[in-house]
Amino acid sequence: MTGRRRGLTILAVIVVAISILTTATLAALVITNYQHLGRLAKVVHLVNREYLEPVPFSTLVDGAMKGIVGSLNDPYSSYLDPEQYKQLFEQIQGSFTGIGVYVSKRDVNKLVVVSPIKGGPAERAGLRAGDVIVKVDGEDVADMDVDVAVSKIKGPEGSEVHLTIFREDGQGFHEMTIVREEVQIPVVTADFSEQDKRIGVIQISQFNKIAANEVDRALRRFKDEGAKGIILDLRDNPGGELDSAVDIASNFIPEGPVVHIVDRSEGTETAYSTRDYIGLPLVILINGGSASASEIVAGAVKDNGTGTLVGTKTFGKGIVQMVMELDGGAASS
């Protein structure tokens, strides 16, 4: 019993020491950042007291959170308020109301069209991959978070949005007015080539929740009907979910790793194949609009030597993003 009491005493001392160390560390952080926190509190007080109209405290908090993420100066990181997160979720599910266009920040102050959705209002209006969106309804979007800019492009079905775009091929500025509508995302289309009925062609427009199952279905059909090769068309595919990319890539490489993800501490997480290798000759079509998950699939095939990449240089987004849900329906990515 005496030994047990001694052990408990030592444990209690360790716990107290850790508690003191933690408290001291937090205190040091607070002291170090006291001036910044004080200025933040003062700004909130001044807005509440001096601003022309009352502002809900929740609006100020949302603005602060947007500012925190925005201070990273990272075009792929953003704070999504509940409405913006809802719109992102709808897009992942396969439909949304807008003009039918995928955009990304090529650098911090350039909102670039990755690709218009085939058959959507943006494509019909003449918007092209590579176009730079400069203004939305007369408002400059260069310095906006990409999700804020997207929320301004989207809107109620039947309403209009006016875009000012810049074409970097020497054609200069263009003005476009596009009517918003409900856009159904054609995730996967698959059929035999018109030029050679022995070749199955699969075109993927986005790596969302249903894409992998649709690709599985297409490959089963091609094998059952005696296909001798596959063309996988990832042109103008802006990416999507990591799990979907891993599942789809798994059809085209032998059992093993699909992608290695390195985190901030240099730790590596590896995603492994989840499907049986189909074993047919493969060509993957890519271009400047092939981004993110598309690059994961193309890269896995290239690294394993199981197919040939044909096309032009891809978009170049070598980053895996996570969407982390927050309370109140918001999220951060």
Rank of each mutant, 00 (worst) to 15 (best):
G3Y: 10
R5A: 15
G7M: 04
G7W: 02
L11K: 13
A12W: 13
A12C: 14
I14K: 11
S19F: 15
L21G: 12
L21K: 10
T25N: 08
T25K: 09
A27D: 00
L29N: 13
Y34S: 15
Y34Q: 15
H36A: 10
R39S: 10
L40V: 13
L40M: 14
L40I: 09
L46Q: 14
L52C: 01
M65D: 11
I68F: 07
V69F: 01
G70I: 09
N73Y: 11
D74E: 04
P75D: 12
S78P: 07
Y79D: 08
L80S: 11
L80W: 01
D81P: 14
P82N: 06
E83Q: 10
E83K: 07
L88Y: 10
F89M: 13
I92E: 11
G94M: 04
F96D: 12
F96I: 06
T97Q: 08
V101I: 15
V103M: 04
R106Q: 13
V113G: 02
I117H: 02
I117L: 07
I117M: 07
K118S: 14
A122Q: 04
R124K: 15
A125K: 02
V136Q: 01
D137Y: 05
E139V: 15
D143I: 03
D143W: 09
M144H: 09
D147R: 11
K154T: 14
E160W: 07
H162Y: 07
R167V: 00
E168S: 02
E175I: 03
T177N: 06
V183M: 09
V188M: 06
T189W: 04
A190R: 14
F192H: 06
I202M: 01
I204N: 09
S205E: 08
Q206Y: 08
A218C: 05
R221D: 13
F222A: 03
G229P: 09
L234E: 03
D236R: 06
P238N: 00
G240C: 08
A245S: 15
S250T: 05
I253M: 02
G256E: 02
V258W: 06
H260K: 14
T274E: 12
D276H: 10
I278C: 06
G279K: 12
L280M: 15
V283A: 09
I284M: 11
L285T: 10
N287T: 10
G289Q: 03
G289F: 02
A291K: 12
A293S: 15
V301Y: 01
G305F: 04
G307D: 03
G307H: 08
T308L: 14
T308M: 12
F315L: 12
G316D: 11
K317Q: 04
I319E: 05
Q321F: 08
M322E: 08
M324L: 05
L326D: 13
G329L: 00
A330L: 07
S332I: 01
